[in-house]
């Protein structure tokens, strides 16, 4: 008998008392009562608590702020779907590296790249969580992981208060990365310390009018 058949057989035997299923009581909060300004304020508070850098800006300020965040970078990777104008104010000494289908940067190249700029799909204010779902303006997972500095664009229209509000906006079968602050660890004496294997600097630009 195959392992699968045997395990499934064991399950049937184990459940011989036929336990019943019950309707799941979903009495938790699923809709927000907050205004957009309150959502922005809440998300800023959470991200600052995680030691991320946060700016709330207008759409036309993106190039300027991207450039100021990346003033020390020597190279920047960006995904194919990112609005190229956002990178237009970067100094000429900053090398721009496009990651596109058919023209992928190797892991070694990514490791030698100072920073990455991506957009994001949806953000949850209550927990300070930014979700990337691999759309063309966010790129494949490796590019937002290997460089040590991540500049992430969050359109304020994509902010929700609660996780259950974010779910319908996600396509769950895409590769998802939920980011709540720069990489951190609680492994030494259960204290959160920022900066391990993921990007050690996370700069979030929350953008109105995008």
């Amino acid at each position: 008998m195959s392992a699968k058949d045997e395990i499934l057989g064991r399950i049937r035997t184990a459940l011989a008392d036929t336990p019943v299923t019950e309707e799941v009581p979903r009495e938790y909060r699923t809709t927000s009562t907050m205004s957009q300004e309150q959502l922005i304020e809440l998300l800023v508070d959470r991200l600052v608590d995680y030691k991320a850098g946060v700016e709330v800006i207008e759409a036309e300020q993106i190039p300027e702020f991207v450039a100021s965040k990346l003033k020390d970078a020597s190279s920047v990777v960006y995904p194919q779907g990112l609005d190229a104008r956002w990178l237009s104010a970067l100094g000429s000494e900053v090398e721009l590296r496009l990651d596109a289908p058919g023209a992928r940067l190797s892991v070694a190249e990514l490791d030698a790249t100072s920073a990455v700029v991506t957009s994001s799909a949806v953000s949850v204010a209550e927990s300070g969580t930014i979700i990337l779902d691999g759309q063309p303006d966010q790129g494949r997972r490796a590019i937002s992981l290997v460089p040590d500095h991540h500049v992430c664009i969050v359109p304020v229209s994509t902010i929700v208060q609660l996780l259950p509000e974010a779910m319908p906006r996600l396509s769950i079968t895409r590769p998802l990365t939920w980011i709540s602050g720069p990489s951190a660890t609680s492994d030494i004496e259960l204290e959160r310390v920022e900066g391990v294997h993921g990007p050690r600097t996370l700069d979030v630009l929350m953008v109105r009018g995008l």
């Binding site: 927990s127 300070g128 691999g134 997972r141 769950i172 990365t177």
Partner: peptide, 16 residues
């Protein structure tokens, strides 16, 4: 409130 990273994947994603 949330751990720094959560990853979800569904089988194989081409090119990622």
């Amino acid at each position: 409130r949330m751990n720094p990273y959560t990853s979800l994947w569904t089988g194989v994603t081409e090119d990622d």
